[in-house]
């Protein structure tokens, strides 16, 4: 399946639609165990992203993802700014000079994004963060070696729901310790929205 600038733009546009619709939900998740700014931050950041990339022309995927990254870093004040900003920055490096990416190349770029998130947040699986969605989804895609995005989105949803059972070890929620159990991690919820949007952008 071909993934070019047009598909990437559609991914961001659908992701933004989801985030705007779920803004209140993401905020409620964050109010329960964090500082309550996740919905607002993500909505502001992705709105800016969509506006920035909509009218611009891009020669390659690298420059498009660089713009996405820089916009998120500049506009999102909470932890999701540097985390998603780093993720898209790593994708932009992996896709530099490419007009289109095949399955293998896009999976490698998403893998680089995950590495970036882990390096920035110093988080690993089981700590109730977005890594609890990204890591199993990337494991699945790596194994399949093809972009089975619908299955990946379903897995992302399942793994997001699984964060409910985990005790937070990172971020503001870690102060709550065991009291964080029973709540979905907001970062895992927005990560699920990104994978769901990718599936819709590529398969309709």
């Amino acid at each position: 399946m071909a993934f070019g600038v047009e598909q990437a733009k559609r991914w961001m546009s659908i992701a933004n639609d989801h985030i705007q619709q779920q803004k209140q939900y993401l905020t409620e998740l964050d109010q329960a165990i964090g500082d309550g700014d996740h919905g607002l931050n993500m909505a502001r950041g992705f709105q800016e992203v969509v506006e920035k990339i909509a009218s611009a022309n891009y020669e390659d995927l690298g420059s498009l993802f660089k713009d996405i990254s820089m916009t998120l870093i500049a506009k999102v004040g909470g932890a999701s700014g540097p985390l998603y900003g780093t993720a898209f920055l790593r994708m932009s490096l992996a896709l530099a000079g490419k007009k289109e990416a095949d399955d293998k190349e896009l999976i490698a770029a998403l893998e680089a994004a995950l590495d970036g998130i882990k390096a920035r947040g110093k988080a690993n699986v089981g700590e109730k963060t977005m890594v609890d969605v990204w890591e199993p989804v990337m494991e699945f895609l790596r194994e399949k070696e093809s972009l089975q995005v619908k299955e990946a989105a379903l897995l992302a949803k399942e793994k997001m729901e699984h964060t409910k059972e985990l005790e937070a070890k990172k971020g503001r929620a870690a102060y709550l310790g065991k009291r964080s159990v029973g709540h979905i991690d907001p970062g895992s919820a927005s990560s699920h929205l990104l994978f769901a949007a990718l599936a819709e952008a590529l398969e309709g």
């Binding site: 870093i73 500049a74 004040g77 700014g81």
Partner: peptide, 12 residues
Amino acid sequence: GGNDGEIGTNAF
């Protein structure tokens, strides 16, 4: 300090 006049931090 802050991010665009709001609470937050900004790498730039």
